[in-house]
């Protein structure tokens, strides 16, 4: 379950990095992002990517770093595919992403 949490954090981070960019934001929401929104996206992205790395390292040290690199590759691949070929799906993907993130997070918190 912690793997799911780490991966979702990583995916969220890259998603936010992408949305912070003018082109990608416009493709998804059809409006322009304000300066402030972009900044907020970047802040969220950095927090969540560092959190993901932190969780990986705390849990499994060296092995965790390797996993983290793999998560990054997988998230960028997924986002690249969606942003270039199915920009309209990004909204739903993000929703699924956040739901899974919350679910796995709360699962770990409870157990």
């Amino acid at each position: 379950m912690s793997e799911l949490l780490q991966f979702n954090l990583c995916l969220l981070a890259f998603n936010c990095f992408a949305l912070a960019k003018f082109n990608h934001y416009r493709d998804v929401f059809k409006t322009r992002p304000s300066q402030k929104q972009s900044q907020q996206f970047i802040i969220v992205a950095w927090i969540s990517i560092l959190l993901s790395l932190l969780l990986c390292v705390v849990e499994r040290q060296g092995y965790g770093v390797l996993l983290f690199c793999g998560y990054m590759a997988l998230s960028v691949l997924l986002l690249m595919i969606f942003y270039s070929f199915k920009a309209s799906w990004v909204k739903y993907i993000s929703a699924v992403n956040v739901t899974l993130l919350l679910l796995s997070g709360s699962y770990i918190a409870v157990i």
């Binding site: 793997e3 092995y63 390797l66 996993l67 690199c69 793999g70 998560y71 590759a73 997988l74 691949l77």
Partner: peptide, 9 residues
């Protein structure tokens, strides 16, 4: 899991 990620990379 990591093996598949290695494979993907």
């Amino acid at each position: 899991l990591l093996r598949w990620l290695y494979f993907l990379c």
